[in-house]
Nucleic acid binder design. Structure first.
Lengths: 242, 242
DNA sequence: TAGTGGTCTAGACCACGCC
DNA sequence: GCGTGGTCTAGACCACTAC
C-alpha cells in the first residue's frame, strides 16, 4: 500500500515516528522497538520497506539491531563529536596567507622522522603565516613527500585546506586524517611572528594524513593565537539525514 | 544468483571492490561509477542488492548519488574528524575524582546565563578535580538544571562522562552535544589545584548538552593540565563499516 | 524519449537467539 | 521449534536528467 498523499517516502515517516518516540522519552535506552513484521503491519508496508526505515535509525545511531533478537534503543551517543575543519577558527571570515619559508628538509625533526616517511624520501617543508582580519592568527608548518613535477608553490597558495592540498599534490590517495590537539606556550620566535608576547598559551593542532596503505603522506602543524582560533565540534553534524 | 561460497554478503563485496578502485586511484573524484543495472549485470545480482552496496559507499562518504544522473566519486572528505571523548585524554588509564564543591548557583556567571537556562530555574554547580596516574590533570565544573528527586551526588561519583550523567539526571532526553575547544592561562587558584605554576597554558573544553527542544540541559567546563590531556580525532572512526 | 536512480512489493531462504 | 533479523529476487511504477 503506497501513500501517495505524502511527498516524503513512507520509510522515512516510519523512521521519524520512532525517532520522535525516542527523543520524547517514550522509548528509553534498552527498549525494543516493534519487530519488522509488526511495523510492516502497522504501516501497511512490506518488510523491505520497513527495513529501509530501520536502516535510517541505525545510521543515525538511535538504535542497534541484533540478529535473532530485535532492534534496541541505544543510549544517547553524545561522546562522538564531529569537527568540521572548514568552519573551525575561520567561520565565514576569509583567511589570508603569507609564505615564510620553503625548504627541502634534511635533518628531520623528531616529530617527522618518527612518523615513518620512507627513510631516504625527500620531504618538502613549508611555513606560512595565517592572517585573520589582517592580524596574524596562526603559524602553519606543512611537510609533504616530495613529488616530481608537482607544482608545490602554486598549489600552496591555492589551497587553504591541508587535506585538499595533499590530495592535489600526491599521486597516492589520502584516506585518513588523524589529529591531535594540545597546548603549549609560544617560543620567542613564534610570539614575534604572531605579534604577541612570549610564553602566551597557544593551541597546537597537528594533523597527519595517511594513504590507503597507511603510510603518512603529509604532516601539518598549526600553532594558533589563543584569542583568534577556537575549535568547534558537535555530536549532531549536518550530514545526518534524520 | 547467490554465491554461497563466500561468507560475506555479495553487496558488501561489491562495495569493497568499488572502494578499492577509489582508494587505489583507479576511480578519481568526479568519476561516475557504473550504473545500478550494469553492476547488477556484472555481479549477477538483482538491482535491490546492488543498491544495498551503493548504500554502504554512500554512508562511508565515498560516493554521492544524483537522481537521474548516477553515482559520483566524492573528493576525500578528510575535513570531518570525529573526537571520541571516551578515549580522549584518558586512554586506557583509569581516572579518579575528588569532589571539591557542590552548590546551588544563584548569581550565575555570564557563560551560564547567556546559554538560556530558563530564568528562574535552579542550577546545580559541581566542581571536581580529575586525577590521572594519581596526579591532578583537570578541573571540571558542571552545571545542571536542578531536578527534584534526582540523587545528584551519587550519580556524580558514578559517571565520569558528562553526557551520560546528564542523561541519567534529567527527565528530558539529551540529543545534542556542542563543544568548543580553546586555550587559556591558569589562574593562581587553578594552578594551585593542578599543582603547577600560575599562567601555565591550559586546554579549555566547554560542552553544552541540548534537549530535543534545543534547550540547554547541562554545561561542562574542563580546564586541563597541558601535559596530561590531549584531544585526539580521526576522519576514519571505527564505526565505519567499510 | 531513453536512461538513470528512488520507492515499494510479496515473496524466498538463511543464521541466530531463545525456550 | 519458533520468532527474529540478514540476504536476495524479479519484478513494478515513479521522478529526474539529458538529448
Amino acid at each position: 500500500m503506497k501513500s501517495r498523499e505524502n511527498l516524503i517516502p513512507i520509510y522515512y515517516r516510519l523512521a521519524d515516528d520512532i525517532k520522535q518516540q525516542i527523543e520524547s522519552g517514550e522509548l528509553k535506552h534498552g527498549d525494543l522497538i516493534p519487530t519488522e513484521a509488526q511495523l510492516g503491519e502497522k504501516y501497511g508496508i512490506s518488510r523491505m520497506t520497513v527495513r529501509q526505515g530501520i536502516g535510517l535509525l541505525t545510521e543515525a545511531g538511535l538504535i542497534e539491531t541484533v540478529k535473532g533478537k530485535g532492534s534496541f534503543v541505544t543510549r544517547p551517543q553524545l561522546n562522538q563529536l564531529v569537527i568540521d575543519l572548514k568552519r573551525t577558527g575561520a567561520g565565514n571570515v576569509v583567511l589570508k596567507y603569507k609564505l615564510l619559508e620553503v625548504k627541502l628538509v634534511r635533518d628531520k625533526p623528531d616529530f617527522i622522522s618518527e612518523l615513518g616517511f620512507a627513510g631516504n624520501s625527500k620531504v618538502i617543508g613549508v611555513k606560512r603565516l595565517v592572517y585573520k582580519d589582517d592580524r596574524p592568527a596562526a603559524i602553519e608548518e606543512k611537510y609533504l613527500l616530495y613529488q616530481k613535477g608537482s607544482p608545490l608553490l602554486e598549489t600552496q597558495l591555492e589551497y587553504a585546506d591541508f587535506p585538499e592540498l595533499v590530495a592535489k599534490h600526491q599521486d597516492s590517495v589520502p584516506v585518513r586524517n588523524d589529529m591531535v590537539i594540545s597546548v603549549d606556550a609560544l617560543s620567542p620566535e613564534q610570539a614575534k611572528l604572531l605579534e604577541t608576547e612570549q610564553d602566551m598559551p597557544a593551541l597546537v593542532i597537528k594533523q597527519v594524513i595517511f594513504s590507503n596503505e597507511d603510510k603518512p603522506l603529509g604532516i601539518s602543524l598549526m600553532v594558533c593565537h589563543k584569542d583568534r582560533f577556537t575549535i568547534q565540534a558537535t555530536s549532531y553534524p549536518l550530514s545526518r539525514r534524520l
